[in-house]
Design a protein around this nucleic acid. Sequence first.
DNA 1: GACGTTTTAGACAACACTGTCTAATTTTAC
DNA 2: GTAAAATTAGACAGTGTTGTCTAAAACGTC
Lengths: 231, 231
Amino acid sequence: MKNLAPPEKRVDGPSQRGQFKKRASILEAAADVFCRQGFAGASIDEIAVEANVSRQTIYNHYCEKETLFVAVVDDVLKRANSMIFSMLATFPVNADNLEEDLVAFAIRINKNCICNQDGKFLRRLVQNEGERYPHLFETWRQQGPGRIISALGALFARLSASGALKIEDFDVAARQFLALGNADLQIMMLFGQTPSDEQLESAARNAVRTFLRAYGTATSPERPDLAAVSG
Amino acid sequence: MKNLAPPEKRVDGPSQRGQFKKRASILEAAADVFCRQGFAGASIDEIAVEANVSRQTIYNHYCEKETLFVAVVDDVLKRANSMIFSMLATFPVNADNLEEDLVAFAIRINKNCICNQDGKFLRRLVQNEGERYPHLFETWRQQGPGRIISALGALFARLSASGALKIEDFDVAARQFLALGNADLQIMMLFGQTPSDEQLESAARNAVRTFLRAYGTATSPERPDLAAVSG
DNA sequence: GACGTTTTAGACAACACTGTCTAATTTTAC
DNA sequence: GTAAAATTAGACAGTGTTGTCTAAAACGTC
């Protein structure tokens, strides 16, 4: 890590006029290798081979290994953030068919945000390098998860206001919804495995059933005989 | 990684007659450094300094870096396993004061198994090196989480049989209990932070309240007016 | 086709790390 | 106190990596 980069060498490298494909290829390969090997274990040569690019080209675009790393993290963070908010936009609006809609929503979140390559990469990277390079994730840490939970909480608030759910703390409910959605997948994901569609569906069903038992109003059909027991 | 270690060099090193303190000191320092830097990023010299030991001593006890790594993983896995099962032994037996007992249980699990140093180490290690050194975690992967969930599930089954809970799938309930317990702590833990006692308690309360709403029978006091709404 | 830019392969120095060796020193057992 | 065992500091070769440099080749644009 050089503290003083020579000012005549631009950090941003070529690409003013094109060669976007090279950059994209490097970013993708670097994400792969950094994810597999970690920052310390990743070698520029390995990235170059995987990107079908010469090592020098990497140094032309990103003057240091750390510059490349920062660019990869930025890229993945941006993509993951836009993905999660586009998924939040598919949250069910009305409450007819709520259970099925929530199941489908949970599947989408898990499949496209948590269990995909970007999700895996982010979990690893944050966990490994978050303490070593706090500045990389600081803004995401302060805004990312908090804003996601707030947004999801607001969606649950809407359902709660319409009487479909009965929730006191919307943010807690949002966190619990996500946590329940991962409950059956966490161990797989810890080992880097990707769940099958069947596993995704089963996990989502288990999660939503429990969530609706806790927060659903009486119209939820899936709580067979609690009223009978309580009455 | 040498494939053929000279047979006259014992893998287990000295310690037949004592020097346990050195070994323990090395193991502890190595766990620390491996956890912070990963396998590739950790240097033997750094471990030696942190253990207050010369580098040669490390090589005397563990002939290769990988041997040391394996020993550290074994050590942590054994300790974590024994801790989790000793915590499971404190699961509430009877159902009077169930909510408070479950809260205390969740706090104990989180504090002593999930949020402590060993838990952090294991999460990192499994996630990072689990694919590269599958043999290290294979037996734990097959037996560890599965047996933990089964054991916790059996405890919930006991409460269910006594009528205090109403659960269909005990293993699912066990996973959900643990997932709910982590719901409020996951982001902190991802960044390597350790929750305060207040945060631990609040997280456990939120988790148990929701869990009991989903699985509790009518005797649970904390579901204020579902019956009224449903009636 | 010509020109400026980008890419490439390869060589290169500087550095860090692993694992070995040795000889001196300290610790431990008896 | 003595002898065996363990530890230490330091030097060392071998290796891999980063980042630089150069000259040739490929590319894109006009």
